[in-house]
Each structure stands twice: as structure tokens, then as C-alpha cells.
């Protein structure tokens, strides 16, 4: 009869512990393990001391040990996996950034277009000298509320720009985004009325927008931007010397 069938978990734990302890007693042959319980005998046999064949890889393991000591390089197989993860993360971040930027651009356009608030008319008429930025009176203040310093809209427009340039700017982009056959119709909608007004008529819109927002990024834009940001600061026009637009000018400030 096998007494083990009534054993509880504590008995099992004892048995499992003793099996390994018996193994550590290297000199003792397994036959002296009490065989009253067959399971105990089986465990003792399973945990018996090393048989010669089991240590056959000893020299190979030692060679590996020496090699690892001589050349302590990190584990090779993990490398490519990590790099793959990194590449993937970079790709994701890039995609995310692209999406976010595109979203911002779209948001800028859509924000500009359906603006129901009438533009606050800027009382200062634009200067006739466009090409020389910031060279005029230092105290010139241009309606600080309507232009944010960071707005990427250079005021290079010659006509009397009733609406703020940034809005016309956005309208131009929105209008250009339309299909050619829909552009004319779009100019009859109220949303683009300001653009039509600024351009001086529906027929002028295309040329006007081309002037205002050229396809290629012009140097005018950069110049205008500096002057614009200088102007937009309410009281600090003299502190920020405008960058010389032409290399001929010596910026001996």
C-alpha cells in the first residue's frame, strides 16, 4: 500500500526538500535512501549525483568562460532587437510630428477662414517703402492687438490692406487649396469677401495672392518678418536692430 496517497502538502514539501538534500550528500548511494516510499525513491533518483556523461560539456563551458573574460562584449542577440525597437519608435515619433504639424497648418487655415469678427482696422497705413524694413521712425507702432509677433505673415502688401495681413494670408492659402474650377465660385461667398476687397476685385485675387504668398519662400518674407516682429513689440523698436537685408550694407551697429 502506498502511504503517499494520503499525504498532504506539507509532506510533499518535506519530500521535495529532502530529495535535493540527499543529492548534496554526494558520497551516499541512492540505495540507502529509505525506499518505503516509492515517490521518495524516485525523487532521490532524479536528484542523484552527476553521472559522468552529464559533465561532458565542461571544457566547452570553460572555453566560453575564458572567451567571455577575454572579450567582454555585451550579449549579441539582444542588440538588433533593441535597435529595431528604436527605429520603430523614431519612425512613430516622426509620423506623429508630421501629423501634428499638418494638423496645425490645417487648423491655422480653418481658423482664418470663417472669421466672423470684423477686422479691426489698423489706423496706421502701411509704409510705402516696403523693401527697407524698420528703417523709418523708431517710435512707429502698428496696432499691437491685431498682429501677434509670431505670426508668419509678412506685410508686403502694397494695397490698403483693410483686414489684417494674417487673415488675408490664410484666405489666400485657403483659396489656393481649392480646385481651379471652384475658385471663381468661392470668391462669391462671404467667406472670401475680405480677400476680394483686399485684392481689389475678383480678377485680381490670383495675382494678389501670388504676391502675398509666393510659392517659393522669398527673402522678402524673412525681411518682413524681422521688421514685423520688431514693430509688433509695442515699445521696443529701437532695441532690435533689423538684420541687414543686403550684404552690401555694413551692419556696423
Amino acid at each position: 500500500m502506498n502511504p503517499f496517497r494520503r499525504a498532504d502538502q506539507a509532506d510533499t514539501e518535506r519530500l521535495l526538500d529532502s530529495a535535493h538534500d540527499a543529492r548534496l550528500d554526494q558520497g551516499r548511494p541512492t540505495s540507502t535512501v529509505p525506499t518505503a516510499e516509492p515517490v521518495a525513491a524516485l525523487l532521490a533518483a532524479a536528484a542523484a549525483p552527476a553521472r559522468p556523461g552529464e559533465l561532458a560539456g565542461e571544457e566547452a563551458a570553460l572555453t566560453a568562460f575564458r572567451a567571455a573574460r577575454a572579450d567582454p562584449t555585451p550579449v549579441v542577440p539582444r542588440r538588433p532587437r533593441r535597435r529595431r525597437v528604436t527605429t520603430g519608435a523614431v519612425a512613430w515619433i516622426g509620423a506623429l510630428a508630421a501629423t501634428a504639424t499638418a494638423g496645425a497648418a490645417v487648423a491655422a487655415v480653418t481658423r482664418d477662414r470663417p472669421d466672423p469678427v470684423p477686422p479691426t482696422p489698423s489706423r496706421t497705413s502701411p509704409e510705402p517703402h516696403q523693401g527697407v524694413p524698420g528703417s523709418e521712425e523708431p517710435g512707429r507702432s502698428v496696432a499691437p492687438g491685431t498682429l501677434s509677433p509670431g505670426a508668419p505673415s509678412p506685410v508686403t502688401a502694397t494695397p490698403p490692406a483693410i483686414p489684417p495681413a494674417s487673415q488675408v494670408h490664410g484666405l489666400c492659402r485657403a483659396w489656393r487649396a481649392k480646385k481651379p474650377d471652384q475658385r471663381e465660385k468661392a470668391l462669391r461667398t462671404p467667406a472670401f469677401q475680405r480677400l476680394v476687397t483686399a485684392a481689389g476685385g475678383p480678377a485680381e485675387v490670383e495675382a494678389y495672392c501670388q504676391r502675398l504668398v509666393p510659392e517659393a519662400k522669398p527673402t522678402e518674407s524673412a525681411k518682413g518678418k524681422t521688421s514685423e516682429s520688431a514693430k509688433a513689440k509695442p515699445s521696443a523698436s529701437a532695441k532690435v536692430p533689423p538684420s541687414p537685408p543686403r550684404p552690401g550694407h555694413s551692419a556696423a551697429g
Partner: peptide, 15 residues
């Protein structure tokens, strides 16, 4: 512990 206990019981039956 439970798994080992069950295993040993199974082994006992087997033996």
C-alpha cells in the same frame, strides 16, 4: 507548491 503536490500524488499513483 500546489503543482508539485499534485505532481507527486500523480507519481505515487503511477508507481
Amino acid at each position: 507548491r500546489t503543482a508539485a503536490h499534485r505532481g507527486l500524488r500523480r507519481l505515487a499513483v503511477l508507481l
